[in-house]
Design a protein around this nucleic acid. Structure first.
Lengths: 225, 225
DNA sequence: CTCTGAATCTCGTGT
DNA sequence: ACACGAGGTTCAGAG
């Protein structure tokens, strides 16, 4: 990884056109050739960047202290960086990274709830996870004690898209005479107001779950915290 | 901005739990207090981060060369960084950034097409941009030579969500007796196959536009390229 | 302020 | 390779 802090001016042309006036910024060049240009604020997203794979051509006019970098990728994206007044230029080999270990996203919610569908409604038992339809799998398919099917969509946050998605599944599932009148249920940690209204309009039940509560349902094992 | 290259081990707990085994990485601390931890590959997204506003507490056991950083934000997110073997530690004041100037996204497409609706279909003329409905504005409302209304949704990429969005608008617009039978049209630079099928099913016309062609429709002015 | 939708999104997964 | 969905998304704009 190469880190350069310098005064620079940047032009990007590709999926959009963008320009950065002259200012001091950090230029990060990763070992895969990707380049990103950071300012000293905002979140982690750089002001400009070029993702790997890409090629870097550096031109240095004889005698001048200014460099021009031309970074191109396979497509028609071009990043031009004019660099002057370099105040840091370091290259360090970081080696390979062992990678990030994650835990606690939608897949985990689905895993827990598939073992405890009655946590959602007392009369439910699991038919199967990832129940297939022609346009994709329903997260959970359950059945009530008196034999009605309930299609369940699990989201971290319940938004309008989730309701639409479940609606499409329901439309297909209800064409299957073996299933009969399939109910719909949207499960999420929070449900946005617009999604709630749309769900109500389509007779889809919304259930709010608490992630910490659900973790309590799991068999105790090696948890990080 | 402070740049540290060091061997570190990281734990994040918050909306999910994540762990980074010990390895050499870049730790970037911006002047707003935000922290991000980068490896030497992948795109610009860091392996772990904490967005501003947040607080950093640094503990250094007496005599040891290891530091522990605890970074917390207002919520319950916590980032713990154990740092050893520092190979770079630099702080540079970058000053404020004049900011990014963009050009060429969906808004620009809409702007050009609102001036040239006949580019989409020869019989169209503009009624108004951002035509209001109860659930949000339609990008363009046009009218055919023989007086029928056409609601147009403009996207950079036509995906299933865009069709759903336009469908909701159409459902509302068609309740208005003053408008009569409103047609739907999805305009995009590319239309994904699933979106195309759904659009066809709902009698929504798809139109592919080429951004470079459209720029040619604009009055020539100061273009970057 | 919150909420909504776009993004040069990035990143995983499955076909 | 491409398509699709999720994200600790981030970001800008509107209400």
């Amino acid at each position: 990884m190469r880190l350069i802090v310098a005064t620079c001016e940047v032009d990007y042309s590709g999926r959009l056109s963008a320009h950065l006036p002259q200012a001091q910024r950090l230029i990060m060049v990763k070992s895969d050739g990707s380049v990103s240009i950071h300012n000293d604020g905002g979140a982690y997203k750089p002001l400009n960047w070029m993702a790997a794979p890409c090629s870097i051509v550096i031109e240095q006019p004889a005698g001048g202290d200014q460099q021009t970098w031309t970074v191109k990728n396979k497509g028609s994206d071009v990043l031009k960086i004019a660099i002057s007044e370099i105040s840091l230029d370091t290259t360090i080999d970081l080696g390979i990274d062992p990678g990030l270990e994650k835990d606690g996203v939608e897949a985990h919610l689905q895993e827990i709830l598939s073992s405890h569908p009655s946590h959602l409604r007392s009369d439910l038992s699991l038919v199967r996870r990832e129940y297939p339809t022609a346009i994709g799998p329903v997260d959970l398919m359950c059945r009530t004690d008196d034999g009605r099917y309930v299609a369940i969509e699990i989201k971290r946050r319940g938004e309008i898209d989730g309701v639409e998605q479940l609606s499409r599944y329901l439309e297909l599932l209800r064409r299957d005479p073996l299933l009969g009148e399939v109910e719909g249920m949207l499960v999420a940690q929070v449900v946005k107001p617009q999604a709630r209204v749309l769900a109500r309009d389509r007779a889809i039940q919304c259930v709010i779950v608490d992630y910490d509560d659900l973790r309590g349902l799991e068999p105790r094992e090696n948890r990080l915290f």
